[in-house]
Amino acid sequence: MVADKLIAPGARILALLSPRGMPRETYGHARELVLVDREPVAADADVVSFVFAHPRGAVLRTWWPGAHLDVVLPSGRMRQYSLCGDPDDPFHYRIAVRRIPGGSGSIELHEELRPGMRVGFRGPRNAFPLSLTGHLGTSPRLRFVAGGIGITPILGMVRAADRAGADWSLIYTGRHRDSLPFLDELAGYGDRVTVRTDDIDGLPTGEDLVPQPDSELAVYVCGPPALLDVVAARVAHVPGLEFHHERFAPPPIVDGQPFTVQWGGGGPVLEVPADRSVLSVVAETDPAVSYSCRQGFCATCKVRVLAGTVEHRDTVLDAAQRAQGDMLICVSRGLPGQRLVLDAGPARRADTVG
């Protein structure tokens, strides 16, 4: 199957020397990918893998487990998807997407994208990197925890850890087995992988997910917020333990204050409650608004502030960008009782997908 060829690490070096693998292409100057394969990877068919290649067959930019792509769909929507193929395959990127009712990005991918079609992309980028050397310079035991579609960034980590001969284990959870993607691939790792489902085993406890939390352990977890919360509580008071996580949903707003935004000069004035983001409120009025991570690190939702003061909560804008009036509306906020006037013009949207 083209989706997950196990290519030896030396293949990337050979590819760089091939006529198809010129350095200019290797570093991602081409901004399009072509879909070469798609197939269901869960029994319920609600998760589909999509395998992309360079339109001219060139070598793609190297990535490390935990990385993601910003995918620009034919509609112009941009969404982030974790890479879940083989990092040593220099010619293909693979993502897997669960069909979400009402989810515009997933619906478009499942229903409209077919082999031969092209998408735009940015990246790969990595906000959830795997380290095989711990903070003390030693090789820690690795505990991977994945919930449902949260297996996508973890899958590459498992592969890398196994190839490196690391001491690792994975617990993979979900509502029922039919909903879990990549079970066939994971079966090859034997008893290093434990699969448990809510319908048979009940909701997992912290002890189920991380049986032996100690200073020699590094925990990597990806999944729904409730799963992250259980793992975080389990490891919170263990000195020296490394805890790395990625969430597929925005974190809850626990310390917000209400304010208002005006979406465009002369546009609608919208109330932003204390427990909601600007993005979530604006999207109800303008469904075409650009966004992706919803966590303040991809900058897809960046807008220009025309008036008002911003409480910045992102992790990506520098001082100069903030000074010129840039704002990420997925996490940053206005001051209590204040009105922010935001640029909602088409030029802003075009800039986010370049």
Rank of each mutant, 00 (worst) to 15 (best):
V193K: 02
I151G: 04
V145I: 03
P213R: 05
L186I: 06
G150R: 02
G156S: 09
E246P: 06
R163P: 05
I200P: 11
S215F: 07
A166D: 06
D167E: 15
P239T: 15
A146V: 09
F144C: 07
L170H: 00
L228A: 10
L227Q: 05
I200A: 15
V219D: 07
L180P: 03
G206K: 05
E185K: 00
A236K: 12
A236M: 10
D178C: 07
H237N: 15
E185H: 01
P153K: 12
L142G: 00
H237T: 15
R192K: 14
L217F: 03
V219K: 03
S169R: 04
S179I: 05
V235Y: 09
L180S: 02
P140G: 10
P181C: 04
L228I: 13
R143C: 04
G156V: 01
H244I: 10
L155Y: 00
E185S: 03
Y172Q: 00
Q212F: 11
H176L: 09
V235A: 06
D214F: 08
D214N: 15
V230E: 10
F243Q: 14
I171C: 09
V231G: 02
S139L: 12
T197R: 05
T194K: 11
D178I: 06
D208H: 15
G223E: 03
D198G: 01
P153W: 08
V195N: 13
S179K: 11
T205M: 07
L183Y: 08
V210M: 13
D191Y: 12
T194Q: 12
L241W: 14
A187E: 15
V231Q: 02
A233T: 08
T173A: 07
L170A: 04
V219N: 08
E246T: 06
I154S: 05
D201F: 08
G137K: 09
P211D: 12
G202R: 05
T152Q: 13
R177K: 13
R175S: 10
A226C: 02
R247G: 09
V231F: 04
R163K: 11
D199Y: 14
A160C: 13
Y172D: 00
Y172I: 02
